[in-house]
Amino acid sequence: MAENATQTIPADVQKMSFEEALEELRHIVGALERGDGKLDDAIASYQRGAELKAHCESKLRDAQEKVEKISLSPGGEIKTEAFDVG
């Protein structure tokens, strides 16, 4: 995860799995689309949604980089390389 991204994403969001963050993001989007709540609540929800979106994007980038590290050896066997996310 990029240094700037970790500074803007709250610790509770950083601890979430991709699936947990996506589920909360879906809930927020649904509430915003329905117009539930007051304006201030909608603004706070939008901010939380932006944090969740950034976290999901980071998780997807990490997964993509891991997948890209998987390659086939000359003998046709799958070879993986260590991937350092930190």
Results as ranks from 00 to 15, higher is better:
20 E>T: 02
67 V>C: 07
59 K>P: 01
53 K>Q: 11
13 V>W: 00
17 S>H: 04
43 I>E: 10
20 E>Q: 15
65 E>T: 08
38 K>F: 15
68 E>S: 10
37 G>Q: 04
5 A>T: 05
42 A>C: 14
59 K>Y: 04
18 F>Q: 03
54 A>Y: 05
15 K>S: 06
61 R>C: 03
42 A>H: 08
22 L>H: 06
27 H>Q: 10
4 N>T: 04
72 L>R: 15
41 D>A: 12
12 D>T: 01
18 F>M: 05
32 L>E: 04
61 R>H: 05
44 A>I: 02
40 D>L: 14
82 A>C: 05
59 K>W: 00
20 E>C: 07
4 N>R: 13
50 A>L: 10
75 G>K: 13
64 Q>V: 02
58 S>T: 11
76 G>P: 07
14 Q>C: 01
45 S>P: 03
17 S>I: 09
19 E>H: 09
49 G>R: 03
36 D>P: 07
35 G>D: 12
47 Q>W: 02
77 E>G: 05
55 H>I: 00
48 R>F: 02
35 G>F: 13
57 E>V: 01
44 A>Q: 13
37 G>K: 08
34 R>F: 08
75 G>H: 10
7 Q>A: 08
39 L>I: 15
62 D>S: 09
63 A>F: 00
49 G>L: 03
6 T>Q: 08
56 C>I: 15
71 S>T: 14
80 T>Q: 14
56 C>E: 00
53 K>V: 01
51 E>D: 12
13 V>Q: 00
54 A>R: 06
67 V>E: 14
56 C>W: 02
13 V>I: 15
24 E>C: 04
84 D>V: 10
82 A>K: 13
56 C>V: 14
73 S>E: 06
79 K>H: 10
43 I>V: 15
32 L>Q: 12
56 C>Q: 02
21 A>F: 05
38 K>E: 15
83 F>L: 09
22 L>A: 11
28 I>E: 01
20 E>I: 00
57 E>Q: 11
74 P>N: 11
65 E>S: 13
45 S>N: 11
